[in-house]
Amino acid sequence: MDGRRLVAWNLRRHRVEQGLSQEKLAVDAQIDRTYVSSLERGLENPTVVVLDKLASALSISIADLFRTPSRGERPPKPLVAGRRGKLKSQ
């Protein structure tokens, strides 16, 4: 797995484990939400500054964004209810 994919995997894993939406993480890291989405899909190459902002917002070290997944480890599932799910139930 290349570095971009590792960051994508771990960024989403940490975000989902903490129950944060992409929007909330983006606000906390002071970056655009669509950029968080692109990072999680492995479409962007983040700078060290962006990695530092994301790690800080997630209360993890930058090194945690490069952890190799264990053999057989599955990608994190999406959060249960997104914005659309909440709007439909109101």
Rank of each mutant, 00 (worst) to 15 (best):
V80Q: 05
T34S: 15
V36D: 00
R15G: 14
Q18W: 14
R71T: 15
L58H: 11
L25F: 12
D52F: 12
S37I: 01
R13P: 00
K77C: 03
L39E: 06
S61W: 04
S89D: 04
K24P: 00
Q22A: 05
M1G: 15
P46A: 04
D64Q: 12
R33M: 01
K86F: 05
M1Q: 04
S89C: 05
P76F: 06
E44N: 14
V80H: 08
R5P: 01
P69R: 05
G19V: 07
I60E: 09
R74D: 13
V50S: 10
V36S: 01
R67S: 10
M1Y: 05
V48G: 11
R83M: 11
S61N: 13
L87A: 08
L54R: 09
L20S: 11
R4P: 03
S61A: 12
K53A: 14
P78F: 02
P75C: 09
R4I: 06
V49M: 08
R12F: 02
V16T: 05
A8W: 04
Q90C: 11
L79N: 05
A55V: 15
Q22P: 03
T47H: 12
R13C: 00
L20F: 11
R12L: 09
V50P: 04
T34M: 10
R84A: 14
F66S: 10
L6E: 01
G42V: 07
R15L: 14
S21R: 00
S59F: 13
N10E: 02
E40Y: 00
P76D: 01
P69C: 03
V48D: 12
D52R: 15
G3V: 08
A26H: 04
S38V: 08
V36L: 08
D64L: 07
D28E: 15
